[in-house]
Each structure stands twice: as C-alpha cells, then as structure tokens.
C-alpha cells in the first residue's frame, strides 16, 4: 500500500482508506475520493501539487493532502 502522492504519473490504484480531520474528509469525499474508487495520477512532478483523475473529474491536490489518501492495487504493490 502507498499514499497517493507516491504514485507516479500514469499509475492507478484503488483507494483503501483516508486519514485526516473532519474538514479535510468532508471536502475530499465530496470531490469523489472515497474508499474502493479507482484513481489514476495524471501529473506528479515529485514536488508541488499532483493531479489525480477519478469519477470523470481531474482534481489538483497538495502533496500533504495526497499523502492522506492510501492506495492499494496492482500498479503499486
């Protein structure tokens, strides 16, 4: 298992769980990030925010935010 910020560009996986406070969770879930959904990384430059794609939507996430999203799945075992 890896956090979302560790996935490279083009990799994808399924969200295992999310950590973080109430405000963060309510914002991130409303954007579509919930357990069991497939998410792929569109851009990850190693520093600065990443772009993730899920549920037909592209979302820019700060590295700290992406680190709170845990991913399971083939491309990151």
């Amino acid at each position: 298992m890896k956090s979302l910020d560790r996935l490279l560009k083009g990799q994808q996986g399924v969200i295992a769980y999310l950590t973080g406070g109430r405000k963060f969770l309510s914002r991130i879930t409303a954007m579509g990030f919930t357990p069991d959904v497939m998410v792929s990384v569109v851009r990850n430059g190693g520093r600065g925010p990443i772009i993730a794609s899920l549920r037909d939507t592209e979302v820019a996430l700060g590295r700290g935010e992406a680190a709170k999203i845990m991913i399971k799945g083939d491309s990151c075992e």
Binding site: K23, F24, R27, I28, M31, P49, I51, T57, E58, V59, A60, L61, G62, G64, E65
Partner: peptide, 8 residues
C-alpha cells in the same frame, strides 16, 4: 491552513 483541493 488547509491545503490545495481543487477541481480542474
């Protein structure tokens, strides 16, 4: 400060 979560 809350971090960046922004729809593109």
């Amino acid at each position: 400060t809350t971090g960046l979560i922004m729809e593109l």
